[in-house]
Amino acid sequence: MAETETESGLKIVDAFDLEPDLRALLRPGELVEGIGGQYHHLPRYFYEIPSHEAARQIRVTPHFGLNEFLLVDLKEAARIRAFPRYVPCAIRILAFYLERLREATGAPVHLAVNGGYRSPAHKLSVAATPHMWATAADVYKIGTVVLRERASIETYNRLIEDLTDDLYVMPYGHEIGKADDHIHVDLGYVSIVPREISEDRLEGPQPRPRFAYEERRRGDRRGWPREPLPEVLPAAAHGSPSGHDK
């Protein structure tokens, strides 16, 4: 079983190891067609979030809690909404970019309901949307500005485009593929494969690999001494190894 524990206390799971009903909803590795006719493999490796409390407490970046990416309504399948919940590992990359957006705007960035991760079973998941990879965000409010007007949406769209080429920004408009009551950004179809996973046998569950940081955390818990850092690094770098998860 590919299952391990990360620095934030979350296990990484291989969705092929999940219960059949969950697996059927998450459809790991399955090819899904996008609106433009391109096909993409759905993510396979997920963080397991044990409880609502954990989702509320765990910060993915300094300003983004895990729960913000899990806000869904009844359009999401009830089984997916029940804890333990699962979110693709790429959520960290999305959060990293949203944190940069927050720095650039200098104001809190609010994700809309159904605007973070959406499973393939979500009613809004009509085609391969990066939301199914946890690499898309719908932002409905920045600071106190509710994004309902063309001017505010286009202003922030421009800001994001100037910030990075990595984020796709949906243009303002009323038609499908455009947004008029939020800002949609996404990183495309990014899947994270933990470094310990061998990709030559992706079609089914594999034996549980030994994850490097799992060993490290186990050592920390048991008080095993760690290798000292080389002298070239400043002393401050000897502190906690997991800065942004705390």
């Binding site: 869904v72 309504d73 009844l74 359009k75 809309a112 309901v113 159904n114 009323h174 008029d180 009551d181």
Partner: peptide, 24 residues
């Protein structure tokens, strides 16, 4: 098929039955 405490996203965007165009 529905519980009364299920959350619903409060979003002002609907689709016309006439031409499938969104309206607010």
């Amino acid at each position: 098929e529905l519980t009364l405490d299920e959350p619903v996203h409060v979003r002002n965007k609907f689709v016309s039955i006439y031409d499938r165009k969104p309206y607010m």
